[in-house]
Amino acid sequence: MGNMQMVPVDDTALAMTDSGGSGQAIVYLNGAYADQRPWRPVIEALGNEYRHIAYDERARGKSKQSADYSFEGTLRDLDAILEATGVEKPILVGWSYGATIAAHWAARHPDRVLGVVMVDGAMPYGLTGEEGQERIRKLFHKMRFILPLARPFGMAARMSAAMHAEVNIEINEIVDSVDVELDQVTCPVRYVLATGSNLGGGEEEMEAARASLDPVLERNPNIQVSAKVPSNHSKILKKDFKAVAQAVRETIAAARQDHKLHNN
């Protein structure tokens, strides 16, 4: 997809691939413990008329480790990537955790983003409070021996099970109130939603999460659902990459339409 380079930020460095070219820049934001590899089918489906930029978060993929795995750190990572590439108005495409990064970044920088695609993430529903935290810690404690084995496949980070859990606890708190950011977003936003279950969350719970979007859709006309697909949360980029690519095209078309209306 392009050459990999290391982008320094804070106490670490991020592995980034950039296809280059003069097309509209699309920046891909990964799931919580994933690397950039799951985006390949989407990138191939969109083709070389766009500039594709993907990167691994701290301690994921080929990126270096850090003393800070906070959500605020991930927002600084996106700043560093945009600065390193010189991209001014990207389309942000986020899956799961990455969708919440996109929502927060777009709310904070309304003039610096062209549009956002949310892939089964950034829904205002989280496991919060002591009970939720306990459940998350137990789940990752159970998975502690599996995580190192999942790492080469881009499904776990180079951090302990306890650190994985803390990242998850923080994102659940943040996503629980992401409707605040979604209400502020002024660019076109398109969602691609799965219909199946998720690791640690049954089908019923995931449906409740997706239903939490309904009031947001009613309040903010910039936000629409592009597609609901039959995949589950973890397989959506692999199985329904065409729907994600289509949502990207729709978002770009909507942003251009907005631009035309404002300039007339």
Rank of each mutant, 00 (worst) to 15 (best):
M6R: 08
M16V: 15
G21L: 11
S22K: 13
Q24I: 02
A25I: 12
G31Y: 00
D35Q: 02
Q36T: 08
W39V: 09
V42N: 04
V42P: 09
I53W: 01
A59F: 01
G61V: 01
K62Y: 06
S63I: 00
S66D: 05
S66Q: 00
S66W: 03
S66P: 03
E72S: 11
E72C: 02
G73T: 01
G73F: 00
R76V: 05
A84V: 06
P90E: 03
L92N: 12
L92H: 04
G94Q: 05
G98F: 10
A99L: 11
A99I: 07
A103Q: 01
H104N: 13
A107S: 06
R108V: 13
R112Q: 10
V113P: 10
M118F: 13
G121E: 06
A122K: 04
G126K: 04
T128P: 04
G129S: 02
G129T: 06
G129L: 08
G132Y: 14
Q133S: 15
I136D: 15
R137C: 15
R137L: 14
H141C: 13
I146F: 10
P148Q: 07
A150R: 07
R158F: 10
S160D: 05
A161S: 13
A161H: 11
A165S: 04
A165M: 09
N168W: 11
I171T: 08
N172L: 02
S177L: 11
L182D: 05
D183S: 12
V189N: 05
L193K: 11
A194H: 02
G202H: 05
L213A: 05
P215A: 02
E218Y: 01
A227W: 00
P230T: 03
K242A: 15
A243V: 01
V244Y: 07
V244H: 06
Q246E: 15
A247M: 12
A253P: 02
D258L: 09
H259N: 12
